[in-house]
């Protein structure tokens, strides 16, 4: 029992990311307001970023920038165990940028929809479409 509890507690990052992701997914599907859906979409993307960054964590390691690096090649031997995994950070920089770009386009589309129907509530928009 204590084993299971400690596994669960030690891996809390994974549970947080799953919870966040499900909140986002629920919001995209269930919310009626188009902007709230966009917010849900952003939470969803952020959860994945948290997941990737969790992959990169390494106990007892520091940020992946070599120390005492100014000046010429006097670094000595670099030990991989001293620095966290840089790859997930690189990947998530890309994912963050993609998230911002998607958000921009989504907001632009929301503005267009608002100009068209004068509302952002999905049920009201669908009612207007049905009336046509």
């Amino acid at each position: 029992m204590a084993d299971i509890v400690s596994t669960v507690v030690d891996n809390y990052n994974y549970w947080i990311y799953i919870t966040l992701m499900m909140i986002g997914l629920y919001a995209i599907i269930a919310k009626n307001n188009l902007v709230k859906k966009i917010v849900g979409m952003n939470i969803f993307q952020t959860a994945i970023i948290l997941f990737y960054v969790s992959i990169g964590v390494k106990r007892g390691a520091t940020i992946p920038i070599l120390e005492h690096a100014h000046g010429s090649h006097g670094y000595g031997v670099v030990h991989a165990a001293e620095y966290v995994n840089p790859l997930p950070h690189v990947l998530m920089l890309t994912a963050i940028v993609v998230g911002v770009a998607t958000l921009g386009v989504a907001l632009a589309l929301a503005i267009k929809v608002y100009n068209e129907y004068n509302t952002l509530e999905e049920d009201e928009i669908l009612a207007q479409i049905r009336e046509e």
Binding site: N11, K58, R59, V78, A80, A81, Y83, N85, L87
Partner: peptide, 20 residues
């Protein structure tokens, strides 16, 4: 693999090459 485990595949396969 357990969170923040230095022996996880992600920390032992490609990243040591990048770091070193």
């Amino acid at each position: 693999p357990a969170w923040s485990d230095p022996a996880s595949p992600a920390s032992t396969y490609l990243s040591p090459h990048f770091i070193e």
